[in-house]
Simulated scan of single mutants.
Amino acid sequence: MWENTIPMDKARELRGKTSVILGNGAIERTFDVLEEMRKEHDFSKIIVVTGKSAYKKTGAWDQVEKALKKHHTQYVLFDKISPNPTNDEVDEAVKLALDIGANGVIGIGGGSPIDAAKIVAIMTIYPQYSTSELFDSLFEPKKALPILAINTTHGTGSETNRFAVLSITNRNFKIGIGYEFIYPKYAIDDPKLMVSLSKEQSAYTSIDAVNHVVEACTSFLTNPLVFLMAKEVIRLVATYLPQALEDGKNLKARYCLTYAAIIAGMSFDNSTLHLTHALEHPMSAINAELPHGLGLAVLLPTVIRKTYGKKAEILSEVLAPIIPELKGVPNEAERASKGMKKWLVSLGVDCTLATLGIGEENIDQLVDLVYKTPGNPLLLYCSPIPVTKALIESIYRESL
């Protein structure tokens, strides 16, 4: 396939709503990307939004800081974004951005810092409001500061799409928003930045990408392009995630997983997500320490069991690299579910809701949050099967 012929050490530009610079060593193009950003926007006073340590551990910050200084760019660093970012963190970052009169945002990290960077880009223009007011739809933003995303994981695809997710701390809500004006202008995807990911991080992030396409290709709003992306994402993850888990420094595997995450992010940008994400968001809202990809992994086999009968032909073809024995007939839903569970276990992911500390006593609260969380009605509407309270309860119970 293409991965045996593409020179992965040469950065290539993937053009779309976001121009993505992909390749081993792509981070060395930061200076050039900043130059392009400054041609198109002012981008002279920057807030850098990132997590607590990965931006340094990966080596990304060395290149970014050097490029900023060469361009004589004024900047302030906010490095307090948590794995499940909150409105309080964003509000604190916005204060720093306002202090320097920021006219641009750089997000460094995986989906959490990049999502937070998108929201900072909005809120810096609307300082009269709080971030929680944005997520409560108390005002309608029309623009955001320009964003450069520097990605350090192969999971969310946030660097390529118009969505951002945030937890509202005082209400146990984890909410997604989407606006045309928060597509990053440029994104840098350098697989070399991902070699330090632990086995768990590697697995959880790629499982997130798998969920993106499984949901996107079965969504009520899906289209033929999404189906093609889904097939390629599953092929790449099935082939190269085991290789990355065996040797974290395998750059070919990291490159392929990075590309898979990019197009997985584009897939639900062209469709939408549904049940697995709608039910996982309340889980990580009430347990901020729960890795998003792990929460999705626990739910995915059950969601496949529930939806397979309606989307058997599509799912059997998309999931063929993981579950080759599927025939595409509705009565094999249990086989599909068990096949997905077996694959997850082979990756070292063998958890249930119970082992994550979520029990029968939490189900009523979770179901309530599924319905009350703003943004979730669209996800539920896009489910391939009718959504009822009984269905949601059964997915949680069968995942215990």
Rank of each mutant, 00 (worst) to 15 (best):
A312K: 01
V367Q: 05
G111Y: 11
E289A: 15
K17N: 10
G109N: 14
E361F: 00
V345C: 04
F139K: 15
G309K: 02
G107L: 09
V387Q: 07
K341G: 04
W2D: 12
L353W: 01
H274T: 01
I385E: 01
I119F: 15
H212C: 02
A54P: 06
V76P: 13
M194S: 12
K10V: 09
A203W: 03
T30P: 03
T169D: 13
M8H: 14
M8Q: 09
L98Y: 14
G176E: 05
T131E: 09
E92C: 05
L369N: 05
G176A: 08
A117T: 14
T156D: 09
T373M: 07
Q243F: 13
L148K: 00
Q128W: 12
M123R: 02
Y396F: 09
I150S: 07
N376Q: 02
M8P: 09
K252F: 03
Q63N: 10
L236Q: 01
G101N: 08
V233P: 00
R29W: 11
I100Y: 06
S383E: 11
G295W: 00
V195D: 11
L225T: 14
T302D: 15
S399V: 09
L197R: 00
I385T: 12
E35M: 03
V105E: 09
V195G: 07
P242K: 08
L241Q: 06
A390G: 11
V165S: 10
D32E: 11
V298N: 14
L138T: 06
C217K: 02
A260Q: 03
T272H: 09
A102R: 01
G348S: 08
I100W: 07
H292P: 14
T152K: 05
K342W: 02
N376W: 00
E140I: 07
L353I: 00
S112D: 07
F163V: 07
S316F: 04
L22T: 04
E334A: 15
I358G: 15
V195N: 10
I119D: 05
F181C: 12
E280V: 04
M194P: 06
K66E: 11
E360K: 11
G339D: 08
Q365L: 13
I6R: 14
N331Q: 13
T131I: 05
S284Q: 09
G59C: 07
Y259M: 04
V76H: 10
F139S: 12
M1C: 10
